[in-house]
Design a protein around this nucleic acid. Structure first.
Lengths: 224, 224
DNA sequence: ACCTGAACACCGTTCAAGT
DNA sequence: ACCTGAACACCGTTCAAGT
């Protein structure tokens, strides 16, 4: 629990526990901040506390990040990367074949939901716009717009293969799909689902069913 | 700007500006907190600052609210009430007539979106689950579940009038609709829409169109 | 180049004491 | 019954000084 097996770069000097030059402080601050977010939510992250846990002074973090916001943004960048990985993993094998395009769309949505459910702290930090600098992060822009581009592409494919009526605008359908999964994920994490008669432990299933329902509605337009 | 014309109860002693017993502190703290949320977002609300602006000591608010969270919850309760009002206003006249049920659903969604766009601070506070006590507020539960019940009712009506295929579960359709409007509203306020090629000032229009698209998809199942 | 120590201006919250 | 004043244990951030 207290060990950080992911920190590879410092392992070779792990024998000298308290050195003046920490060596890997930047990365460890990010991990420490994430751990704090996991314990108490994004607002619970304190730069001082992160420093304390790493055994450095309260001022040390400010050598690596201009302010708290920049640290949170770095955590969010890690999160955005993992989202893209999860989505790519979910889309995975599926290539070609009839009905493939719409199934790929479903997979993107499932990957998104799975990521939001599996890494709630990541999802929360990414959407905590008041705590991070979405604008000034090229990395986040890249990862996020990649998922978006894939979504639109799949819908256009589905339309050209007549799985979805071409009467609708593909970008609007994509936005609808994104709003749905984003809304579901946020409702889940904001604790709204219990008010919708969703039992504890059933959330993932219901969220997926809701996504499936949307995909079904889209597919139903094919015949019209 | 600095005057508070909404505070009726204290007007009759407004002539004695600095009295020991404030008289209406509870309500004015809520308004002050909301004003702060409007200026700097929910996290920017400080109990001390609210007290300072009202000319009372830092400890005074704690006579009326056990902690900061309770104050934020009170602000959220005001917000939930205004949501219900906005939705009811939007549904308004529409009663009976063919095609009415689905149009009513559209109106509920529009009312929701309009509220979220018009009162962004309210919407943010309501969905800032880490800052408020959703559970322990009967008032919020009531207002929120009222909107939810109306949504389900409209979908059942639409199904019995064959505007929407009865093949789908009404509660799931309602959840899909809610996830969509909630997701749209949050994407807007979390600054995600700009990444979806939505121009500034066009947000309200695009959000409504996306809602319309969902309603259209639902309506398209009637024939099947 | 990287970190410390001490300081500054803030928080939320408590509690004895005042009116 | 309602509020003050002073205190406590926290923050984020800065900056001269140390290694």
């Amino acid at each position: 629990m207290t060990k950080k097996p992911t920190s590879i770069a410092t392992d070779f000097i792990e024998s000298t526990p308290r050195r003046y030059h920490h060596g890997n402080l930047r990365q460890e601050l990010i991990e420490s901040a994430l751990a704090l977010a996991e314990e108490k939510g994004p607002e619970g992250v304190s730069v001082r506390e992160a420093a304390r846990r790493l055994g450095v002074s309260p001022a040390a973090p400010f050598r690596h990040f201009p302010n708290r916001r920049a640290l949170m943004t770095a955590v969010a960048e890690d999160a955005a990367l993992r989202l893209r990985i999860e989505v790519n993993k979910s889309v995975g094998g599926r290539t070609g074949g009839k009905g493939a395009a719409l199934e790929k769309l479903r997979s993107i949505g499932r990957g998104y939901l799975k990521w939001a459910i599996s890494y709630p702290s990541h999802f929360r930090i990414i959407s905590a716009r008041d705590q991070i600098d979405l604008e000034h992060s090229a990395a986040m822009h890249h990862n996020i717009s990649d998922v978006r581009a894939q979504t639109i592409q799949m819908l256009q494919d589905a339309q050209s293969k007549r799985q979805v009526s071409a009467r609708y605008n593909a970008e609007m359908l994509a936005l609808l799909a994104r709003a749905t999964v984003y809304g579901l994920a946020r409702m889940h994490l904001d604790g709204h689902l219990s008010q919708w008669n969703v039992a504890q432990g059933e959330e993932a299933k219901i969220m997926q069913s809701t996504l499936d329902l949307l995909v079904d509605l889209m597919a139903a337009t094919a015949s019209a």
